[in-house]
């Protein structure tokens, strides 16, 4: 009697093991089939290959700005005037939502390079063209929900949580930068 119940228990243990391992294998199989179907929505190889852009700044006069495309997004490059540089450097960090010094954000103080996408909900701020509204701090102003950015692209007023993003870039020569 006791022998019978013991062998029954053993069989139940075996059965549980078989059921659990079968479901586990089925789960692994389903996940590995699902992955290619999900991953195909990630950037394709040709999209990744377009991930860097070179910009020639030699014709950009003081006070002027240009917008270039990088990964399908606008990148702002502005040649700042000495007054703008002074304002960006001297402002106190205490009054900022996202305190960063101008030196941290701009390796070459004449040229500021920013991803031109408002950190609030993704609109493109105004301030690149000469007639644009530049906001209370003279940098950029997002018309969608009223975020004001200063000469260093830092958020000073409005709903945006962080400063305008600085893309990774480097100077290939004095006047040519490579973004990405």
């Amino acid at each position: 009697m006791s022998k019978n119940s013991k062998s029954k228990n053993n069989n139940e243990g075996k059965r549980d093991f078989l059921i659990i391992s079968t479901y586990a294998m089925a789960g692994i199989g389903a996940a590995s089939v699902a992955w290619p179907l999900i991953d195909q929505m990630n950037p394709a190889a040709d999209t990744l290959a377009l991930a860097s852009t070179e910009v020639d700044l030699s014709s950009l006069e003081e006070g002027q700005a240009i917008t270039v495309t990088w990964r399908g997004k606008p990148v702002f490059v502005r040649h700042r005037t000495p007054e703008e540089i002074k304002l960006a450097k001297e402002v106190s960090l205490d009054e900022m939502r996202h305190p960063e010094t101008d030196e941290e954000r701009v390796p070459n103080e004449k040229f500021i390079v920013l991803v031109g996408v408002c950190t609030h909900l993704g609109c493109v701020p105004l301030g690149q063209k000469s007639g644009d509204i530049k906001g209370q701090y003279g940098g950029w102003f997002c018309p969608c929900h009223g975020s004001h950015y200063d000469h260093s692209g830092r958020i000073r007023k409005g709903p945006a949580p962080t400063n305008l993003e600085v893309p990774s870039y480097k100077f290939l020569s004095d006047n040519i930068i490579k973004i990405g």
């Binding site: 992955w35 290619p36 179907l37 991953d39 195909q40 990630n42 394709a44 190889a45 040709d46």
Partner: peptide, 13 residues
């Protein structure tokens, strides 16, 4: 052809 070469797992799908 882009599906075959560039899209992730595109050849398989």
């Amino acid at each position: 052809e882009r599906i075959m070469r560039d899209v992730n797992h595109g050849w398989l799908i």
